[in-house]
Nucleic acid binder design. Structure first.
Lengths: 139, 139
DNA sequence: AGGTTTTCTTATTATATTAATATACTATAA
DNA sequence: TTATAGTATATTAATATAATAAGAAAACCT
């Protein structure tokens, strides 16, 4: 299940992507418009900034703005930034791989093979969808 | 990510499915063989029993045994019993559906549509895989 | 009938994660 | 130099996960 953090992040990014102007947008504007706790949103946007997907400007006229075009931002990468691995098991994760402590051979583990399949089919969908024309909730 | 509960459950069921005889198997035998905390496994098997996938016998010669043939037990149904929804959002879950509180129209929500797609592709894989010849870890 | 085996029930504990809030600090534009 | 707005740190509350403990209930055996 996607956490609220991820969902909020997607909504906030989608909000930024929908901006006509490419001027910075206030955290409070996003938080009010998308009904997200402001403080919680602050930490989410910071995470996204550290991931390099958006930038910020301080002081009056400041705020957050996207660093790439919406069509160049995959949903899969956003989920990875906020939620972590997309795979259902650490031992099949591409970006957050961890070896099973109880598994001697991944090639012979049915669960590993199965979950790798699931991961691939999920990625195929999430990597082909971007922030372009992405709307969520009331939008 | 799948919880240990689900992983343990899959390993235990796989162990039962691999039995030649259809006689009850002791919890302690499974727990030792698969390296699972016995008490934790007890509660997992109990959950699976309540879900109707296996039955138990008390007293000497007792234990747990499958109620169906391994090839008739889908991995998807096991995950649902132990982990809950397979979908990444409550609003696209087939078995654990919950309406989004902030969403006025699911048909017009990109996230809903996207996650429904992911759910379908995941189910396509998990519903076609059963406990037959399913081995995990060292087996 | 009585004792043993084994599952079942209930409660408790520890740890981690998620979600949210509070306070103070730093950078920047006007 | 002041108001603005993001940044850092820390604390809290709620929930979920993982594991453990003690005893009750049922089935079996002699």
């Amino acid at each position: 299940m996607l956490s609220k953090k991820t969902k909020y992040g997607l909504k906030a990014l989608s909000y930024l992507a929908r901006q006509e102007q490419h001027t910075p947008v206030l955290i409070s504007e996003i938080s009010e418009s998308e009904n997200i706790s402001k403080k919680f949103l602050e930490s989410i946007l910071l995470t996204l900034k550290k991931s390099g997907i958006l930038a910020s400007k301080k002081g009056k006229g400041g705020g957050y703005y996207l660093l790439k075009q919406p069509e160049d931002i995959k949903i899969s990468s956003i989920i990875r930034m906020l939620e972590g691995p997309i795979a259902m098991l650490p031992c099949v994760s591409l970006n957050y791989y961890q070896k099973c402590d109880d598994c001697t051979s991944e090639e012979r583990c049915s669960l590993n093979i199965l979950m790798a399949e699931v991961r691939d089919s999920t990625l195929k969908i999430l990597e082909n969808k971007t922030l372009a024309n992405f709307h969520c909730g009331d939008h």
